[in-house]
């Protein structure tokens, strides 16, 4: 099954790398936006997973929760992308509802696997409920 992802990342270089990592390497269907507003503009359909940078220039990646709540963005599992975090911070992101945290710098050849694992774990958890 081909996965679909939406990347929300303001740094064009990193955005391109994630596109290659998920699209070219893993063969996913990938769309990307440089910010939350741009992501809203992408419209339907909802992806299998969002990858959101926490620091999006002027925007805060964590505001994605508000967009889910007011319906402007289709709800889907999401992972935060962030520079080196401490364990406590990671826990904080998970409590916000993220299914995983991708720490920068990451190995692009292993990114798709990491996201896939987080997604499967999450779906398994959903299934049990």
């Amino acid at each position: 099954m081909t996965r679909s992802a939406i990347i929300i990342e303001d740094d064009p270089a990193l955005r391109r790398i994630i596109e290659v990592a998920l699209g070219r390497i893993a063969g996913w269907s990938v769309r990307s936006a440089e910010g939350l507003a741009a992501a809203v503009a992408l419209g339907a359909p909802a992806p299998d997973v969002y990858l959101v940078d926490v620091m999006l220039g002027d925007e805060d990646g964590r505001s994605i929760l508000g967009l889910f709540d007011d319906g402007s963005l289709a709800r889907a599992p999401f992972l935060f992308v962030t520079a080196l975090v401490r364990q406590t911070q990671r826990a904080e992101y998970m409590e916000l509802g993220a299914i995983g945290v991708i720490e920068k710098p990451f190995d692009p050849t292993k990114l798709a696997d990491a996201v896939e694992r987080a997604l499967e774990q999450h779906l398994a958890g959903e299934g049990r409920r």
Binding site: L14, I17, R24, I25, K104, P105, F106, T109
Partner: peptide
């Protein structure tokens, strides 16, 4: 350090993609 690290991660990632023979 932070300003160096951000572009550096992109360089690293790009090189890894090349190294992996993706293209």
């Amino acid at each position: 350090a932070h300003e160096i690290r951000t572009p550096l991660s992109s360089i690293l990632a790009s090189l890894k993609i090349l190294d992996a023979g993706v293209f």
